[in-house]
Amino acid sequence: SELMNSSKLIRMLEEDGWRLVRVTGSAHHFKHPKKPGLVTVPHPKKDLPIGTVKSIQKSAGL
């Protein structure tokens, strides 16, 4: 199965306009000026399962 580095996923979010608002432990929480909701990324993780990545991307509207 495909894995993604959390840094790469965070870069994709930031390029889309998401900004880090809070860190709780290894959970990084992002908000967007125009899009609704809060997106949480486990970080640092070298090997996020593709299912997790897809669900984060979906929440972020990517």
Score class of each variant (00 low, 15 high):
Ser1His: 13
Glu2Asp: 12
Glu2Ser: 10
Glu2Pro: 09
Leu3Phe: 11
Leu3Tyr: 11
Leu3Gln: 13
Leu3Glu: 11
Met4His: 08
Met4Glu: 05
Met4Ile: 08
Asn5Val: 09
Asn5Gly: 13
Asn5Phe: 06
Ser6Asp: 01
Ser6Leu: 03
Ser6Met: 03
Ser6Arg: 03
Ser6Ile: 03
Ser6Phe: 04
Ser6Glu: 01
Ser6Trp: 05
Ser7Pro: 04
Ser7Trp: 15
Ser7Glu: 10
Ser7Ala: 14
Lys8Gly: 10
Lys8Ile: 14
Leu9Cys: 05
Leu9Ala: 04
Leu9Pro: 00
Leu9Glu: 01
Leu9Phe: 03
Ile10Trp: 02
Ile10Tyr: 02
Ile10Gln: 02
Ile10Asn: 02
Ile10Glu: 02
Ile10Lys: 02
Arg11Gln: 13
Met12Leu: 11
Met12Pro: 00
Met12Asn: 05
Met12Cys: 07
Met12Asp: 06
Leu13Ser: 00
Leu13Arg: 00
Glu14Thr: 09
Glu15Ser: 08
Glu15Tyr: 08
Glu15Pro: 00
Glu15Leu: 12
Glu15Gly: 07
Glu15Thr: 09
Asp16Tyr: 06
Asp16Arg: 04
Asp16Ser: 05
Asp16Trp: 04
Gly17Phe: 03
Gly17Cys: 06
Trp18Tyr: 02
Trp18Arg: 00
Trp18Lys: 00
Trp18Cys: 00
Trp18Pro: 00
Arg19Gly: 06
Arg19Val: 12
Leu20Ser: 05
Leu20Gln: 06
Leu20Thr: 06
Val21Glu: 07
Val21Gln: 07
Val21Tyr: 14
Val21Phe: 14
Val21Met: 09
Val21Pro: 00
Val21Asp: 06
Val21Thr: 09
Val21Arg: 05
Arg22His: 10
Arg22Gln: 09
Arg22Lys: 14
Arg22Pro: 01
Arg22Tyr: 12
Arg22Asn: 08
Val23Ser: 08
Val23Arg: 14
Thr24Gly: 10
Thr24Met: 09
Thr24Trp: 10
Thr24Ala: 11
Gly25Cys: 11
Gly25Ser: 12
Gly25Asp: 14
Gly25Pro: 15
Gly25Val: 13
Gly25Phe: 14
Gly25Tyr: 14
Ser26Gly: 11
Ser26Lys: 13
Ser26Asp: 14
Ser26Ile: 14
Ala27Leu: 15
Ala27Trp: 13
Ala27Ser: 13
Ala27Cys: 13
Ala27Lys: 10
His28Phe: 07
His28Lys: 06
His28Ala: 13
His29Val: 14
His29Tyr: 12
Phe30Asn: 00
Phe30Tyr: 09
Phe30Asp: 00
Phe30Trp: 02
Phe30Lys: 00
Phe30Glu: 00
Phe30Val: 00
Lys31Ile: 13
Lys31Trp: 08
Lys31Pro: 00
Lys31Cys: 10
Lys31Val: 09
Lys31Ser: 10
His32Leu: 00
His32Arg: 01
Pro33Glu: 08
Pro33Ala: 09
Pro33Met: 08
Pro33Trp: 09
Pro33Leu: 08
Pro33His: 09
Lys34Tyr: 14
Lys34Gly: 07
Lys35Thr: 03
Lys35Val: 03
Lys35Arg: 06
Pro36Cys: 11
Pro36Ser: 11
Gly37Ala: 06
Leu38Met: 12
Leu38Tyr: 12
Val39Ala: 04
Val39Ile: 11
Val39His: 01
Thr40Tyr: 13
Thr40His: 10
Val41Lys: 01
Val41Cys: 04
Val41Met: 03
Val41Ala: 01
Val41Gln: 00
Pro42Val: 05
Pro42Asp: 06
Pro42Tyr: 05
His43Leu: 02
His43Tyr: 04
His43Ile: 02
Pro44Gly: 04
Pro44Ile: 04
Pro44Tyr: 04
Pro44Asp: 03
Lys45Trp: 07
Lys45Gln: 10
Lys45Glu: 10
Lys45Tyr: 08
Lys45Ser: 07
Lys45Cys: 14
Lys46Ile: 13
Lys46Glu: 15
Lys46Tyr: 13
Lys46Asp: 15
Lys46Thr: 13
Asp47Gln: 11
Asp47Asn: 14
Asp47Val: 13
Asp47His: 15
Leu48Arg: 01
Leu48Phe: 05
Leu48Tyr: 02
Leu48His: 01
Leu48Ile: 12
Pro49Arg: 06
Pro49Tyr: 05
Pro49Lys: 07
Ile50Lys: 07
Ile50Pro: 12
Ile50Gly: 07
Ile50Glu: 15
Ile50Thr: 12
Ile50Val: 12
Gly51Tyr: 09
Gly51Lys: 13
Thr52Pro: 02
Thr52Ala: 07
Thr52Lys: 08
Thr52Met: 15
Thr52Leu: 15
Val53Lys: 02
Val53Gly: 02
Val53Tyr: 04
Val53Gln: 05
Lys54Arg: 14
Lys54Asn: 08
Lys54Glu: 14
Lys54Cys: 15
Lys54Ala: 10
Lys54Ser: 09
Ser55Leu: 12
Ser55Ala: 15
Ser55Asn: 11
Ser55Gly: 09
Ile56Cys: 02
Ile56Asn: 02
Ile56Thr: 02
Ile56Arg: 01
Gln57Ala: 09
Gln57Lys: 11
Gln57Val: 15
Lys58Val: 12
Lys58Cys: 12
Ser59Leu: 15
Ser59Asp: 12
Ser59Tyr: 07
Ser59Phe: 07
Ser59Pro: 01
Ser59Asn: 12
Ala60Cys: 03
Ala60Glu: 02
Ala60Met: 04
Ala60Thr: 03
Gly61Glu: 05
Gly61His: 05
Leu62Val: 06
Leu62Ile: 13
